[in-house]
Structures are given as structure tokens and as C-alpha cells.
Amino acid sequence: MPEILTQFEMEKLAGTPIFKGLSAAELLTVAGKVRLRKAAADEFFFYQGAPAQEIFILRSGRVKISQVNPDGQQVLMRIVGPWSLFAVIALMDAEEYPASAQAAETSETLVWSKNDVLELVEQVPHLSLNLMQLMGSHLKEFQDRFRELATERVERRLARSLLRLASQTGRKTAQGVLIDFPLSRQDLAEMTGTTLYTVSRILSQWETQEIVISGRERVVIRNPHGLVRIADDLP
């Protein structure tokens, strides 16, 4: 028996990039194949190298997608917020997950098996167009990051990473835009390809300039415009 999604979940699902534009009947077919899975903070949904058999939509919580290089150094690739898709690579030829997915806080996911999704694509051709667009936008994000790593000063890279995180998971508070996610300086160093020491130095400098407030695992952008100016090299 498929687990039944609530009306709220169905509406959210209809708004996700992968399932947008599907008819109510098609969405019901999609919902009929779903399973739910939870993870407590720090638990893994899957490990790098495990057989890539499922795709996930985060229902609540936050998930960190990270990769370990052959030297054992971990790199945080992406942070997934609610109603975003992850592990879409399972639909490609990939036999194994190229990265691990770890819950940063208690997280609930909607899970579909690779085979079910591939069957759905045959029934609902519009799904493949959505998937192409979704992969295109991931590709663009990684191309941008690659260009930043290859060409930009670390200040700009850090500014861009914070802005990207703020637009994906930010929340406006009295102090400024809070990146609503436990974010360590080590995470930021991994995302921007630099050292913990450099991240700390830049954040302290920005703190003095009243651009950010950075506590332990917490960053508030006090002056978003100031950060945009650094990221985009505006006058």
C-alpha cells in the first residue's frame, strides 16, 4: 500500500521543479510510488559509494551533500532545503552515489526508487523536460562555482557562497538575513575551497565592517548590500 500524502504535501509537490506542470492525475501516480524516510541529526540518508537506487525530496529539515576526496578531505557540495530534490544522479547511469547525504538536523524525506521514476518518465514525458531543466540548473550552479574557484579572490567566493545560502535557506530577522542552518566555518571553508583560518579571518573583518554577525555555527548577514558589493565587485 502506498503511503498517502496530505493535501499540503501534494500542493508542495506540485510546486517542485521536478513535478511542476503535471496534471492532478499524474501527481497522484507520482504520489502512489512514494515512501517516507526520516533521519535524526547527523544520520545519513546514503553514503558515497553506495548503490544509487533512490531519489529524494526533502520534506522538512536540512541535508548536507558532501564528498570525500581520496586523501580523506571532506568537501561540502550543497545544502538542501525543504522541497528540494537530491540524489537525482541516481536516474543517470551512475551505479553509485558520488556523494553522501547527511541530515544536518532532524529531516524527513519523500523517496522514490530509481525504477519507479524511470517508469513514471515513460508515462509522463513532461517529467523528462523538468528533469533536464533541473539538471541544467545544477550544472549552472557548479559551473559558476568552478569559475569562482578558478578565477576569483577568496573574499568574493565566500561572499557568493553566503549569498547563495541566504537565497536558498535565508530568513529575515531583526538583525538581518539569518542563514537558517547550522553552518560552521569549516563548512564554509569546504564550500569555498579555502582554509578554516582564511574563513575566520575574512568573517572577523566583515564583522568589524558590520557586514555579518558570525556566531558559532550561525551567520547573519547584517548588510546584504555590503555583501553583494563584495560578491559582484560593485563600486
Binding site: 549569498l163 547563495r164 541566504a166 537565497s167 535565508g170 529575515k172 538575513v177 548577514i221 546584504p224 548590500h225 555583501l227 553583494v228 559582484d232 560593485l234
Partner: peptide, 17 residues
């Protein structure tokens, strides 16, 4: 003003701009 297309425009107000 660089507000057009800015990822922070979602958070900023007229006063801040």
C-alpha cells in the same frame, strides 16, 4: 541600483535600498 535580479532583493526593503 543593482537591486534588479539581485538575490537579496527578496529580503531588502525600500528603506534599506
Amino acid at each position: 541600483m543593482s537591486c534588479i535580479g539581485c538575490s537579496m532583493a527578496h529580503f531588502d526593503t525600500l528603506k534599506e535600498a
